[in-house]
Amino acid sequence: MKPNEIFKELKVHFGEEITELVENPSSDTYISVKPEKIDEICRFLRDNDAFKFDFLTLLSGLDLKEKLGIVYHLYSMELKHRLVLKTEVPKDSPNLPSLVRVWRTADWHEREAFDMFGINFQGHHNLIRILCPYDWEGYPLRKDYKEPEEYHGNRVPY
């Protein structure tokens, strides 16, 4: 199934939640959605017989200066088609529903996005840092991140 067909189908079921279809010759076509009901949209994409997106290939965070972005790459093992979903959350309250209950893959991916960007996935059962130490301060992949002067008595700058 092509992304524009999926977009039409999603528009019928979720209406306002689905914002736009962005076609770009240099990259994947993606569907931009609102963050509030992302878990329901994804569950629908997984369970509907026309889509059968049974595999979350990738979940990544983005820093878009004013907002934080989250990108989902989905793949269907059975129907061999793929889809890119994008959503945005404001930087001062980066909250959106977790997808752990939909795809278990989301578990560590969401922890990484939380670790690097501070995106708060609500409903995640174990949202703690995965790469940085637990007592690390700040979110390193944000554009406005300042590296610390010292960590556990070790000087950080060269």
């Binding site: 940085c132 390193p140 991140y145 590296e147 610390p148 070790n154 700058p157 060269y158």
Partner: peptide, 20 residues
């Protein structure tokens, strides 16, 4: 030895093991 390629922007790297 010195942090290598991470010497400038490596916020997470110890710049040389001789510091510890």
């Amino acid at each position: 030895n010195s942090g290598g390629p991470y010497w400038e922007h490596g916020y997470h790297v110890l710049k040389g093991v001789d510091r510890i």
